Computed example of a mutant assay.
Amino acid sequence: MKTILEVNQLSVFHQESAHCLLKDIHFSLTKGQVLALVGASGSGKSLLAQSIFQLLPENLRQKGDVLYSGRQVNEQDRGTNIVLIPQSVAALDPLMKVGKQIEGLIQAGNPHQMMLDLLARLGLDADIATRYPFQLSGGQARRVLAMIALGSPANVVIADEPTPGLDQEAKNEMIALLKQVKQAGKAILLITHDFDVALQLADQVAVLEQGSIVEVADVEHFSGEGEKLTHPFTKALWQSLPQNLFKI
Score class of each variant (00 low, 15 high):
Met1Ile: 11
Lys2Arg: 15
Glu6Thr: 13
Glu6Ile: 08
Leu10Ile: 06
His14Ile: 09
His14Lys: 05
Leu22Trp: 11
Ser28Cys: 10
Thr30Lys: 15
Lys31Asn: 10
Gln33Asp: 04
Leu35Cys: 00
Ala36Ile: 01
Gly39Val: 03
Gly42Asp: 08
Gly42Arg: 12
Ala49His: 04
Gln50Leu: 15
Gln54Cys: 05
Lys63Trp: 01
Val66Gly: 07
Gly70Ser: 07
Arg71Met: 15
Gln72Asn: 10
Val73Asn: 05
Glu75Arg: 15
Gln76Arg: 12
Gly79Thr: 01
Leu84Ala: 10
Ile85Ser: 00
Ser88Gln: 14
Leu92Ser: 06
Lys97Leu: 01
Ile102Leu: 08
Gly104Asp: 07
Gln107Pro: 01
Gln107Phe: 04
Pro111Ser: 07
Leu116Phe: 13
Leu116Lys: 14
Leu116Thr: 05
Asp117Cys: 05
Gly123Arg: 03
Gly123Lys: 05
Ala126Tyr: 09
Ala126Arg: 13
Tyr132Pro: 03
Gln135Gly: 02
Gln135Asp: 04
Ala146Phe: 00
Ala149His: 00
Val156Gln: 03
Val156Glu: 08
Thr163Ile: 07
Pro164Val: 10
Gln168Asn: 02
Leu177Ala: 11
Val181Phe: 06
Gly185Phe: 09
Ala187Pro: 06
Asp194Phe: 01
Asp194Lys: 01
Asp194Met: 00
Phe195Glu: 08
Asp196Tyr: 08
Asp196Val: 07
Ala198Lys: 13
Ala198Leu: 06
Ala202Pro: 03
Val205Ile: 09
Glu209Gln: 15
Asp218Val: 13
Gly226Ser: 10
Pro232Trp: 04
Pro232Gln: 01
Phe233Lys: 14
Thr234Val: 00
Lys235His: 07
